[in-house]
């Protein structure tokens, strides 16, 4: 049997791109949600966390609808850029980003909320604008939450299955990521290939969680001096 390593590369590509998307989207949204009160905030909050509790197949179905021929984002991309998301690696990236967004969002928002507002006020009296305050005071002090969110989102992206299958399909060498390869290998009776992939994913996920716990422990020690 020749080991097919392509799913590993595709999974890493998808996870890195998805986490980049999540960071870009999450930073401004978590910052606004942590600092401002507005009407309907609870509704927005619930919508942002929804992918965490929805079955991945439901998320996949919604994405398929939105990015398909009849959804406005799909029509927009098709019309202006002649680009199709469904059955491409971009679809897998979007599915992973949507599913892992709440993990990053919750972790970052909690960390931003825990930053002492007096520090931000002090920065204001020292002549700093809101963007400078965010990047030089608030975000560095919420760093632990940011990194924790980043790691969890990466791990979740790497393991995304249901929504990815719905929107990106299972095209070997194109959209077949590790979790999809494991499922379809087992389905086709290719146990050995699946065994190796399962081992890689389990060891990797374990290391991620272990490293995160270790880092948190060190962080607590640092805070206590």
């Amino acid at each position: 049997m020749q080991f097919d390593y392509i799913p590993i590369i595709l999974s890493l590509k998808v996870a890195v791109a998805a986490v980049a998307l999540v960071v870009i989207g999450c930073l401004p949204i978590a910052a606004l949600m942590a600092k401002y009160e507005f009407w309907g905030k609870g509704l927005v909050e619930s919508a942002l966390t929804l992918p965490l509790v929805l079955p991945p197949s439901v998320v996949g179905f919604m994405l398929l609808y939105l990015f398909g021929k009849n959804g406005w984002p799909g029509m927009f991309l098709q019309h202006f850029f002649h680009y199709q998301v469904v059955f491409t690696l971009s679809g897998a990236v979007i599915a992973s980003a949507v599913v892992s967004f709440p993990l990053m969002y919750q972790s970052l928002k909690a960390a931003l909320e825990s930053v002492d507002p007096n520090l931000e006020k002090a920065a204001r009296t020292l002549g700093a604008g809101e963007l400078r305050i965010f990047f030089t005071v608030t975000l560095p002090l919420a760093w632990n939450g940011f990194i924790a969110g980043l790691v969890l989102a990466f791990a979740r992206s790497l393991g995304e299955f249901g929504a990815t299958l719905m929107i990106a399909g299972n095209i070997p060498g194109k959209t077949q990521t590790m979790p999809l390869a494991i499922f379809f290998d087992v389905y086709a009776g290719e146990g050995k290939q699946a065994n190796i992939l399962v081992l890689i994913m389990t060891v990797f996920s374990f290391l991620v969680i272990y490293a995160l716990n270790l880092w948190r422990k060190k962080g607590r020690k640092r805070e206590m001096g």
């Binding site: 006020k121 002090a122 009296t125 604008g129 005071v137």
Partner: peptide
């Protein structure tokens, strides 16, 4: 806004970064 008022402010808990 506070950043343009040219005041110095000492907070009770110092508010050092």
């Amino acid at each position: 806004p506070a950043r343009e008022r040219r005041i110095g402010y000492l907070f009770q808990d110092y508010a050092l970064f």
